[in-house]
Amino acid sequence: MKLRRSFEEGHRRKLLIVVDESQEVESALYYAASRVLRSSGSVAMLYVIEPGEFQNWAGVRQVQLEEETTKAKALFRLFRRKLSLAGFENIETEEIIREGRLAEEILKLIADDEDIALLVLGASIDAKGPGPLVASFAAGRMAGGFPVPIAVVPGQLSLDEIKALA
């Protein structure tokens, strides 16, 4: 396992969240921002463009990439605005867009960026389960060998409860 550099001099600790349109992203975002506010660092927001079914059609793929990139940027703006409205306007954020399979891209990013110190996931309150990332990373067979700690934030917590926990 690669030694993380996030606590060495000259490095800033990053808390990684995965951005999508699910409700539980907000819980992860507020928890990460609360932790950063208390201990310094920044919040890295990752959006992954998953491969589509039209991989062989370059024109269609290019349009899909453009649409997904526009969607990612809109989500980043939305979450920065939500941070500001929740009292986290001074939190430094980083926006990362990658293309590939979600789990693979998360692992690649953590391997590439030694300043990532924590993956923060929001757990869904849906009866179907906590969500695919929580199920595979935090509770699945990868949990024991994951390269950074994982914080799982219950989706039903209020902003005040999240701030108190962080």
Rank of each mutant, 00 (worst) to 15 (best):
L109G: 12
I125C: 11
Y47H: 15
S27R: 07
I110S: 12
Q64T: 11
R13G: 04
R81C: 05
G145H: 11
G145N: 13
E9C: 03
A166K: 06
K82R: 14
V148F: 10
F146A: 10
G131S: 03
W57P: 01
L159K: 10
E105I: 05
R35V: 11
D112M: 11
L121W: 05
G87P: 04
L133D: 03
R13Q: 12
I97Y: 06
G41R: 09
A86L: 04
V43K: 09
A164V: 05
W57N: 15
V148G: 13
I91V: 14
L37T: 15
I150F: 05
A33D: 08
G59A: 13
D115G: 12
V120I: 08
A32R: 00
W57I: 15
V19C: 04
G131K: 02
T69G: 09
R38F: 03
I150Q: 09
R141G: 13
E89S: 15
A123F: 05
S6H: 12
Q55A: 15
G100I: 05
V25E: 02
R38V: 08
A33G: 08
K2V: 07
I106W: 03
S136P: 01
E68I: 03
G131F: 01
A138F: 07
S27C: 09
G145Y: 10
D126N: 14
N90T: 09
S84K: 13
M1C: 01
E94Y: 02
G129V: 02
A166G: 12
K2C: 00
L75M: 09
V48D: 13
P149T: 07
E99D: 03
A143K: 15
P130I: 02
K128E: 12
P130T: 06
G10F: 01
R61T: 15
P132M: 09
V153P: 06
F79Q: 00
L3T: 10
P154T: 07
I116F: 13
S124R: 11
E66V: 11
S6W: 07
E99S: 14
V36D: 10
A74P: 00
L37D: 11
A74I: 00
K163G: 11
A135S: 15
I116K: 10
A151K: 13
R141V: 11
E68N: 13
N56E: 14
L15W: 02
A117M: 03
I17F: 06
R98E: 08
M1I: 01
S136M: 11
L78C: 02
Y30Q: 08
A139K: 15
S158Y: 02
L119N: 09
R35A: 15
L46Q: 13
G131Q: 03
L109H: 09
G100M: 06
A117C: 08
P130H: 09
K73A: 05
L78A: 06
Q156W: 10
I17A: 10
V48C: 14
G129F: 05
A74F: 02
K82Y: 00
G144V: 06
S84Q: 12
E67V: 11
G145C: 07
Q64R: 15
G41H: 11
F7E: 07
F88A: 09
L109W: 05
I162S: 07
A151F: 08
S136T: 13
A32F: 04
G59V: 05
G155R: 04
R38I: 05
K71R: 15
G122K: 03
A138G: 08
I96D: 06
V148A: 12
A44Q: 13
E53D: 11
V134Y: 08
R4S: 14
F7Q: 08
S22P: 00
E105P: 07
Y30T: 03
R61E: 15
E161F: 03
L46F: 14
